[in-house]
Simulated scan of single mutants.
Amino acid sequence: MASPPESTKVSLRQRLLARIRERWPQLATVKVRHHGAFAYVTGELPDGTVLPLFRLRYHGSATTWGFAIYRASHDDYENSILPSGHPSGTPQEALDCACRLYLNDITAWRQPPTN
Rank of each mutant, 00 (worst) to 15 (best):
S3T: 14
P4V: 06
P5G: 02
P5H: 05
P5L: 00
E6F: 13
E6H: 07
K9H: 02
K9C: 10
V10Y: 01
S11V: 00
L12D: 04
Q14D: 11
Q14E: 15
Q14V: 10
L16Q: 01
L17R: 15
L17W: 09
R19W: 07
R19V: 11
R19P: 00
I20G: 03
R21A: 15
A28G: 06
T29G: 01
V32N: 05
H34S: 04
F38H: 14
V41Q: 04
V41Y: 00
E44P: 02
E44L: 10
L45E: 07
L45D: 01
L45A: 08
L45T: 07
G48D: 10
T49A: 12
V50C: 09
L51V: 11
L53K: 05
F54V: 02
L56A: 14
R57N: 09
R57H: 11
Y58W: 08
H59V: 10
T63K: 13
W65V: 03
W65S: 06
G66R: 08
G66S: 10
G66E: 06
A68Q: 02
I69W: 00
I69L: 12
Y70N: 00
A72D: 01
S73K: 06
H74C: 06
D75Q: 14
D76H: 00
Y77W: 11
Y77D: 02
Y77R: 05
S80H: 07
S80E: 04
I81F: 09
L82V: 02
P83T: 07
G85M: 11
G85K: 06
P91F: 03
E93P: 11
A94F: 07
D96L: 11
C99T: 09
L101M: 13
L103N: 10
D105L: 15
D105G: 10
T107F: 13
W109P: 00
P112A: 13
P113W: 07
N115C: 05
